[in-house]
């Protein structure tokens, strides 16, 4: 009876050197590079699930047409006249409403387990979150452009010209980026995407309707005016309206910029704390 003894194969150092990368370990990606990569991932998601763009295209178009033609005559005498007042507001409403999808996407990725993979990577920790938001900024820009084009077709004529429109949209994108951090926090807090959507709708519906988007607050009861005039959406609409109208209201614009910074500092910090604890 013969026995064979198995000896572990140990490759020679020279043989190993030929298959292993001879260069030094690649450097860690910068914060910017990592964020842009995750931003690109968010954009690829849009490419693969184009139905997502319904909220960016069809919904704003429907809202613009509905309010212009159904309510325009009763609210301002004629649809075209009402459109000059309405369009910046509808743009703000539509873009701010779709900020909640950031939280929903974050929550989906957590449920799928993708987040656990990301956390093992040698990257700047907030880059996953920043990436989501950068990808979403593209969606916000698309929504703004769609509404602007529809508005121009229907007869919207901004007094601020091209520069006023560009600055108005830029301010809207800055605020929306900042506001999205609120939903990333909820995306990390809530158990499922339905809960995230429920909470966000509960916040967004009163904020958008109880504002100066559709009607002048002066026509509302006194107690409601107090709420409407204090609403962040009202401040944002007033500043975008002033930029597009060609008479920038610096007080409102500063309010929006400061509140955007506060939102990023507060909710960005909370989001990252929750993310690190996950």
């Amino acid at each position: 009876m013969t026995t064979t003894t198995d000896t572990a194969y140990a490759p020679a150092t020279e043989a190993l050197a030929t298959v292993l990368a001879p260069t030094t370990r690649p450097p860690r990606p910068s914060a910017w590079s990592a964020s842009m990569t995750f931003g690109w991932r968010a954009m690829l998601k849009i490419k693969h699930v184009p139905e997502q763009l319904f909220d960016v295209t069809a919904f704003p178009i429907m809202m613009t047409l509905m309010f212009t033609y159904l309510f325009g005559g009763a609210l301002a005498g004629s649809p075209t006249e009402y459109l000059q007042f309405l369009l910046p507001g509808i743009m703000v409403t539509s873009v701010v409403m779709i900020t909640m999808y950031t939280g929903i996407e974050v929550n989906k990725d957590i449920e799928k387990g993708v987040f656990d993979r990301f956390r093992t990577l040698p990257i700047w920790r907030p880059s996953t979150m920043v990436g989501y938001l950068l990808g979403d900024v593209l969606r916000y820009f698309m929504a703004s452009t769609v509404i602007l084009l529809i508005g121009l077709l229907l007869g919207f004529r901004p007094g601020g010209g091209f520069a006023g429109v560009v600055l108005g949209i830029a301010l809207l994108l800055v605020f929306s980026f900042a506001f999205s951090w609120v939903w990333t926090m909820f995306g990390l807090l809530m158990r499922n995407e339905k809960s995230v959507m429920g909470v966000s709708m509960l916040v967004m519906m009163p904020l958008t309707f109880l504002s100066n988007v559709y009607v002048d607050p002066a026509t509302m009861p006194g107690w409601l005016q107090v709420f409407v005039n204090a609403s962040p959406i009202s401040h944002l609409v007033s500043s975008v309206r002033s930029l597009m109208g060609g008479a920038p209201d610096m007080g409102e614009i500063m309010w929006v910029l400061v509140s955007s910074a506060v939102l990023v500092v507060v909710f960005g910090t909370l989001t990252m704390r929750l993310y690190n604890r996950k």
């Binding site: 309510f71 009763a74 609210l75 109880l210 559709y214 009607v215 026509t219 509302m220 409601l224």
Partner: peptide, 18 residues
């Protein structure tokens, strides 16, 4: 409740009933 409050208080003061 929401629809009633919205139309009466938010739009009510601005809409003319012809």
């Amino acid at each position: 409740v929401m629809i009633m409050v919205l139309f009466v208080y938010v739009f009510g003061g601005a809409i003319t009933t012809g």
